[in-house]
């Protein structure tokens, strides 16, 4: 690990100014991803600006009925918040399916969203990886890629985004509040994350020094009936092979509105807009769910060893929608 300086951020403005002015600087949340990367040599910042104590630890109502989640709210506190549990259960469920109790107790909302891929080559500095070292090649393309992307990948990178929380937030259409030296901006989470294209070193559209201060959830009444389903190799404490965040509004057997996002399948949390479109106005039946899932997955381009993810994603979408609609109409 190369030596670095450490500063506890006094306020947003100085934290943003400090990191922006120093190309080697990075924000530090709880460190559960970044400190791992320091040890592995994946990241080598010369200054850490600790933003975990900034006063963004509140979950507050927004005018218009939404909810603002501060960037430093810890994953457990967000998961167990009574308003989140009741109005956005998919958010609680996504968080509770991730990491472990002792990690969730410290990990921050912003850190969770900005965590980097678990692609083993990305984490192993002895191997080529375009995301870690642009232009060095992608070891996963012909190597170990069972956990990798089936949608939206490029030959430059086939990694998937690891955050469960981000999948639920993508289904909800959350908006990320960002502070930079040029001022504040709001970024719909769907636009925060990038597909790899030819620049997989950039996970998001954030510029160096831009700080996430909050995430806003829209009012979205139908999210009270939402959930998150995660399929993984172990029953617990593992990243998703495939996951689905969904909310459905069904009236007399017909889908009025629906939100579906997929995790574990792409470089970004994947909003399943084609499936959503196919479902609006359709009967709430397994056949319709399957057809919608297939419409979404028609664009899947699996790799040699991860074709299993296509039927797995389809079945998980169907199972999740079935669970929600059965629950809605007893």
């Amino acid at each position: 690990m190369i030596p670095f300086d450490y500063q506890r951020a006094e306020d947003t403005r100085s934290a943003v100014a400090t990191v922006t002015a120093r190309p080697g600087a990075a924000f530090l949340g709880a460190g559960t991803n970044l400190v791992d990367h320091l040890k592995l040599g994946v990241a080598a910042p010369d200054l850490l600006v600790d933003v975990s104590h900034l006063p963004f630890d509140m979950i507050e109502p927004l005018a218009g009925g939404g909810v603002r989640i501060g960037a430093t709210v810890r994953n457990s506190d967000l998961a167990v918040d009574p308003v989140i549990r009741q109005r956005y259960p998919m958010v609680s469920a996504a968080l509770l399916s991730g990491a472990s109790g002792q990690l969730r107790n410290v990990a921050t909302t912003a850190g969770n969203l900005m965590q980097r891929t678990r692609c083993p080559y990305f984490q192993d500095v002895t191997t080529p990886c375009n995301k870690r070292r642009p232009g060095s090649g992608c070891s996963a393309l012909e190597g170990y890629h069972r956990d990798h992307a089936i949608l939206g990948a490029s030959r430059h990178c086939v990694a998937v985004h690891p955050s469960d929380l981000a999948v639920a937030l993508t289904a909800l259409g959350a908006v990320v509040q960002v502070e930079g030296v040029k001022g504040a901006r709001s970024i719909p989470i769907i636009d925060l994350y990038r597909l790899p294209d030819d620049a997989p070193q950039h996970d998001t559209v954030l510029e160096h020094g831009e700080l996430i201060t909050a995430v806003d959830l829209p009012a979205l009444p139908m999210a009270t009936r939402s959930t998150y389903r995660k399929v993984r190799d172990r029953a617990s404490y593992a990243f998703a092979l495939v996951s689905v965040a969904a909310a459905v509004d069904v009236e007399r057997g017909t889908v009025r509105d629906v939100r579906v996002a997929l995790g574990g399948v792409a470089h970004k949390p994947w909003r399943a807009r084609r499936a959503e479109e196919a479902l609006r106005g359709a009967p709430a039946t397994d056949d319709a769910f399957r057809a919608a899932a297939e419409a979404e997955l028609a664009g899947a381009r699996p790799l040699r060893d991860n074709a299993f993810k296509v039927p797995m994603a389809r079945n998980t979408i169907v199972a999740t929608l079935r669970e929600l609609t059965r629950r809605e109409e007893p």
């Binding site: 450490y6 506890r8 530090l28 709880a30 460190g31 559960t32 400190v35 791992d36 040890k39 850490l48 600790d50 975990s52 457990s76 472990s100 109790g101 002792q102 990690l103 107790n105 410290v106």
Partner: peptide, 25 residues
């Protein structure tokens, strides 16, 4: 690397791993 829990303590009253926490923080 945060994966095994052997380093778990009660940190400011809550269980937390300590191998990915920086002491200065």
């Amino acid at each position: 690397h945060g994966q095994c829990g052997a380093c778990t303590v009660l940190l400011d009253g809550r269980r937390a791993t300590t191998c990915l926490a920086l002491a200065v923080a």
